[in-house]
């Protein structure tokens, strides 16, 4: 699907960076210094997940009490399950909050997941690309909006050969549009180009 014939795709300036990276992993899990799945949260970050769960639980409970069951509905009605899920969410949120507090008091304090590794900039660039893509998809059409998305994401991941990136992005997007409309009979929005052509 993703094979490409635009000639050699690896540029010289990417090679040293790539070689550098091979030295980093090979440790357990080949992840960053902390394994997020088991590392306890520390710092202000430890409140985020319990807070999220509490909010979702509150919304579920609110829904459970406000949902209007049709008069002929058999019991348990449509509110029972949301109520149970909401209550359990609040319980788990409380347990996680307590575990977070205890972990920060008794833990060795070094291996906590403080999110210091989190690089916000590329994430924001990708998110911006997605938002723009969604907003412009039906205006610009798949070809341009898709190419733009590809280009922005490639940029966020460190591609800097702008012209070549644009060519690759346009050909990917075009290949998808042609493949889908011809091969599978699925129509993607034509947008602006449809008016011009």
């Amino acid at each position: 699907m993703m094979s490409r014939s635009e000639g050699p795709v690896s540029v010289p300036e990417e090679a040293p960076e790539a070689r550098e990276d091979t030295r980093v992993p090979d440790g357990p899990g080949t992840t960053a210094a902390v394994d997020p799945e088991s590392a306890p949260w520390s710092g202000p970050a430890r409140w985020v997940v319990p807070a999220l769960l509490a909010v979702v639980g509150a919304v579920a409970l609110w829904g459970a009490f406000t949902v209007e069951a049709p008069p002929n509905a058999t019991r348990p009605g449509p509110g029972a399950f949301p109520g149970a899920v909401g209550a359990l969410l609040l319980v788990v949120a409380a347990c996680l909050a307590v575990a977070g507090l205890r972990g920060s008091r008794t833990g060795d304090g070094t291996a906590g997941n403080t999110l210091s590794w989190f690089g916000a900039r590329p994430v924001l660039v990708v998110m911006a690309g997605l938002v723009v893509h969604v907003a412009l998809l039906e205006v610009l059409g798949w070809l341009l909006a898709g190419a733009l998305l590809f280009w922005v994401v490639a940029y966020a991941f460190g591609a800097r050969a702008h012209l070549r990136d644009a060519v690759v992005a346009l050909s990917m997007s075009a290949a998808v549009q042609v493949g889908f409309s011809l091969g599978l009979g699925l129509s993607l929005p034509g947008g602006l180009l449809e008016l011009v052509l």
């Binding site: 993703m2 039906e138 898709g146 998305l149 994401v153 490639a154 591609a159 690759v168 998808v176 889908f180």
Partner: peptide, 29 residues
């Protein structure tokens, strides 16, 4: 494939897969 293109490609196909469900932008949101 070079990392930027691989992840850009995954993003493109992900958006496509969701859009293809019902050709609806609301699904993308």
């Amino acid at each position: 494939l070079p990392k930027p293109y691989l992840y850009a490609g995954i993003t493109l196909f992900s958006v496509l897969a969701v859009y293809a469900i019902n050709t609806s932008v609301v699904h993308l949101v």
